[in-house]
Amino acid sequence: MSKAQHIMLGKGLADLPFGATRDEVEAVLGAPEEVDSVDLGDEESIAWHYWDLGISLNFDESENYQLCTIEVASPEVTLFGKKLIGMKRDEAVAFLDTQKIGPSKPETARGVAYEDVELTLWFNGGEVAEIQWSRM
């Protein structure tokens, strides 16, 4: 996987398309550093963590365990040509509000969601710490 990656809303990350199998992901990134299995009540979700790359991937039972959600913390990743990790909350929201992806909705004090495109920004100390998006 190349160091610089760009987020493709609804489609995945440059080298990792939504719908990829775990074998296909492993062929690109290698074995995950950590694997979690989470019981969501009505289904299982398996999370693969690549801490050194700043990427976590989810494979949900309802999606036949294909890649369905990506979360990044790598400052190299771009969205609409901008590196958002480390950007101040107001600046990131103002930038995304110009991208015609639908309205932002505060999730909590720690997050802002763009439900129309299945995108959530997570903040730590007032700065973007993680970007999470899913297949639409």
Rank of each mutant, 00 (worst) to 15 (best):
A94R: 04
F18G: 04
E43S: 13
S134Y: 12
A109Q: 06
A73Q: 06
L29Q: 03
N64D: 15
L121K: 08
E107K: 12
W51L: 11
I46N: 07
A47C: 14
A27E: 09
D52E: 10
R22H: 08
S62Q: 08
L121D: 06
D23R: 15
A94T: 01
D42R: 11
D15T: 13
A94V: 10
A94D: 14
G41F: 06
L119Y: 00
N124F: 12
I46L: 09
E115S: 14
E130P: 01
L96M: 02
A20R: 10
A92F: 05
S62D: 11
L57E: 05
L119A: 00
G102H: 04
I70S: 09
G41R: 05
G19H: 07
L53C: 02
P17N: 08
I101H: 05
R110A: 11
A14K: 09
V35L: 06
L67T: 05
S62H: 13
A31N: 08
K83G: 06
A94F: 07
L29D: 01
K83P: 03
N64V: 12
L84N: 00
G19I: 03
V35E: 06
I70L: 15
D23Q: 15
L121I: 08
D90S: 11
A109W: 02
A94P: 02
E33D: 11
T69P: 09
L53R: 11
L121H: 09
A27R: 01
T21I: 03
G30Q: 12
R110D: 13
Q66D: 00
E71W: 13
W122D: 10
N64L: 00
K100P: 06
I101D: 05
E118V: 13
E127N: 10
I131R: 13
Q66P: 07
H49G: 14
F59M: 10
R89T: 14
Q132H: 11
S134A: 13
F18A: 00
G19C: 09
D90N: 14
L29S: 01
W51Q: 14
A129H: 13
T78I: 01
N124P: 00
D52N: 11
I55Y: 00
V112L: 10
L96V: 00
F80Y: 09
D15K: 09
G41Q: 02
V93H: 02
D15G: 09
S74T: 03
L121S: 07
W122N: 08
E130G: 07
A27L: 00
I85L: 00
Y65H: 13
V77R: 05
F123C: 08
A73C: 10
D60Y: 06
F80E: 03
A113C: 07
E118Y: 15
E26W: 08
V77G: 06
M87R: 04
Q99E: 13
P75K: 06
E44G: 11
A47I: 15
D39E: 07
